[in-house]
Design a protein around this nucleic acid. Structure first.
Lengths: 129, 129
DNA sequence: TCCTTTATAAACCTCTTGGTTGAATAAGAG
DNA sequence: CTCTTATTCAACCAAGAGGTTTATAAAGGA
């Protein structure tokens, strides 16, 4: 659970950088070496190497070996982690919205909506005391 | 374009923090005040207030006013930005994978796959020189 | 073997982030 | 008015992130 949390943190964090998102975009089009990737940005190759390490730690890319080169490969499955998280709460919010609509509908009043309509759901992630 | 980029950066960045993700999770169950949210974590209320500002700047939440209270509301539409980005590259990677399979199939060889199969795609985001 | 290419490691710097505490603001409630 | 509640602002601090440069490692190619 804390593990999944760390993983999500790493993935979101990895994609919060424009260069790293761009690297992912490029890799979706095919594997590439560090040098190939690096030539597109103004930052040093070492910086790109660091970015790749971040992506790798997040599980978003993997690397093999081809002579001196280390081709980088996109691991698209990790996206699932994010989309699942996102979709879960999006759905929940939409569901709540639907219910709110139903309530307003039933009593035909505006109301500033300050209370909570739904009860507690089992929330696997939240844990702080 | 750079605007969308900033927005994506802010959204991913906002969700890269466990407390902020948890806040989003809670808000998906209903609006809440800063105080209500803050009581769940060990950090100070001021820290929570800062987290909310980050979420707000990312467009993930909005705030209204109810006397001294400032109820926080989840803006789930922003999720679309992310899912669209993610799905785009996931799909592209899968597509590439399919084509690779086809190629391997056609020539019945293993091959370590180092080259690029597809040509450049018009990539709206990538822009660095 | 020696050179060149490709990539990483290490040390360093600066800016950002997430946290703190203490003061200020906003808006009822008595 | 004055007090209390709810929230934010300001100043500060430690740790982390992203960048640099210099040096090192790994692995063909001449």
């Amino acid at each position: 659970m804390a593990q999944a949390d760390d993983r999500l943190t790493r993935v979101f964090s990895a994609l919060s950088d424009p260069i790293r998102r761009d690297i992912v975009a490029r890799l979706s089009d095919g594997d590439a070496t560090v040098g190939e990737l690096g030539s597109s940005y103004q930052v040093s190759l070492q910086a790109v190497s660091k970015h790749l390490k971040v992506l790798e730690d997040a599980g978003l890319v993997s690397r093999s070996r081809d002579a001196q080169r280390r081709p980088v490969h996109l691991e698209a499955e990790v996206f699932d982690l994010m989309t699942k998280w996102i979709e879960r709460y999006r759905r929940q919010a939409e569901e709540r919205f639907r219910r709110l609509d139903a309530v307003l509908d039933a009593m035909g009043s505006p109301a500033t909506f300050s209370g909570t309509i739904s009860e507690d759901l089992t929330d696997t992630e939240r844990g702080a005391s």
